[in-house]
Design a protein around this nucleic acid. Sequence first.
RNA 1: CGGGGAGUGGCGCAGCCUGGUAGCGCAUCUGCUUUGGGAGCAGAGGGUCGCAGGUUCGAAUCCUGUCUCCCCGACCA
Length: 470
Amino acid sequence: MWFRGNSLRCARFARPLEGGRPSTQGSRPPMRLSRYFLPVTKETPGDAQIASHQLMLRAGLIRQTAVGIYAWLPLGNRVLRKIETIVREEQDRAGAVEMLMPTIQSAELWRESGRYDAYGPEMLRIRDRHDREMLYGPTNEEMITAIFGASTKSYRELPRILYHIQWKFRDEVRPRFGVMRGREFLMKDAYSFDLDEAGARHSYDRMMLAYLRTFARMGLAAIPMQADTGPIGGDLSHEFIILAPSGESEVFFHENWEAPRTADELAVSPDDASALRAFVAGLTADYAATDEKRDPAREVEAGEALRTSRGIEVGHIFYFGTKYTEAMGMRVPGPDGQMVVPEMGSYGIGVSRLVGAVIEASHDANGIVLPDAIAPFRVALINIRADDARCAAAADELYRRLEAAGVEVLYDDRDERGGAKFATADLIGLPWQLIVGPKGVERGVVELKRRATGERQELSPDDALARVAG
RNA sequence: CGGGGAGUGGCGCAGCCUGGUAGCGCAUCUGCUUUGGGAGCAGAGGGUCGCAGGUUCGAAUCCUGUCUCCCCGACCA
C-alpha cells in the first residue's frame, strides 16, 4: 500500500540531519535569486489573453495545471499571502472571528437548504468510496449555519461574525483571464448572525467599512456598487468593483469615486452602530451602480460628473435575512423567551482574483507594477556585475543590512548581465530596485529606482537603506 | 452547452494541402570575447510530432476514434 512506503520515507526524514546548519537558513526562506524558483520568460505564453494573465505567467507567479486551476509559484504565493494578510487584519479589526471550514462538504447539508439541486452544474459533485455524495464547496452558508446554529443556545451569543479564508471550487462553464476567473479560487467569506434586522445592518456596515479599508490598504479604488443579490437571495447588496479596461462588466459612477481612499480616511470605530451608519451613508452617498442596477434619475443628477468604465468585481457583501437559518432550523430564545430565527449576511472577497485584478489595474509595457502593500518583496537588490569582487561585496553587504533591518529583499545575485536583471526586476514589479554597479561603487554610491515612476537617484548606501526602509 | 481553432525539443512557431533522413527563433550546455537595459562568435545536447487504431513499401503529413488546451457566445466571485 502506498502509505507504507510513505511512512518509511517519513521515518527516514525524521532522523536528525547530520551536521549543523546556520540557524538563519532554517528559519528564513532563501531570498537570493540564485537559490529561488522564479521561472520568468521573455516571450508571452500563447494561451493568455489579457495583460495580467500574461504577466503572471511571464513573471513566474503562476502555472496552469488544468483549465481554470493554477499552481502558485513562490513569488505568486507571496503576493497571495500579502493580500490574505491584509484581508485578515481588516476582518479582525471589524470584529469578525477567524475559523477554517473544509473544502469538501456532504450533499446532505446542501439538501437541507434546497441548494443541492438548485445550484446546478457549477457545483463539483464527487463520490467517496462508500458512494456517498460529496461536493467541493463553492461557498459555506449551509456549513456555517449548521455549525454555528448547533452550538448557539441564546440570543446572548449574538451577534457574531465568523469568517474563513479557504479554497473554493466553481465549475465555471468557461474559465478565462487566468486567476481572475478560475475554477479553483481562494476566497475570504464571512457570515454574520444577528438577532434582528437592525443588528444585521450594523454587521453589514462593519463589513462595508472593513472592505473599504482592505482595498484602500492595497492602493485600490474599489467602488461599492448597488448590485443584484444573485441566486443567494436577499435585498441589501454591494459589489466592490475596481476599474480596469478589461473588466467583465460595465459600471457607472460619480467621478468622486475615482480617487482611491486612504485607510486614514476610514478610521471610524466599527462598534458604534449609529456613528458607523452615518459614516457609511456619507461615504456611499455618491452614485455608483453596475449595469443591471443603473438609476437614470441619479445619473442625470450626477450630470457631467458621471463616469463609465469596465470593472472587475473583487468583493461582494449582502444581507439575506433568514434564508439559511430558516432552512437549516436555527433558532435561539430571545430576550422575551420567544424563539428567534437569526438574520444573516455573507461577505466575500476574492483573494486569488485580487492578485490578477491588481495587476490588471497596475502594469506597464515592462511588466507588473505592484503596490507596496502587496509586493512579495519590497526591494530588488541588483548587482549588475556579478564578476566584480567590489560590486559583489557591496551588494552582499547591502543584502545583509536590508535583512537585518527587516526589509524584504530579493537579491539578484545570479551570474547574468545587467540588462537581464533589469528586465527581470521590471517584469516582476517590486516597488524598489537597488542597483549596485562598478561606476557607483567607485564613488561610494548606489542607485535607487522606483518601479512605478521610473525615477532614479544616486544615494549613499546608508541613505538608500533609510529611504527603502521608510 | 453551442460555434470555431490548436496539440511538433523547456518556450514561441514552421513543416501537413501534394506521404519519402523533423526544421527555425529563443532558452540550455561548453569555449573564447564581452559586461549600466533581456550580449557576440564557434561548437554541442535535447523531440517515439498528444494518445490509440487504421491505410501504405513508407505517416508529423491521409482516415477513424479519443484526450488535452485555446478563442467567441450564454453564465459567474
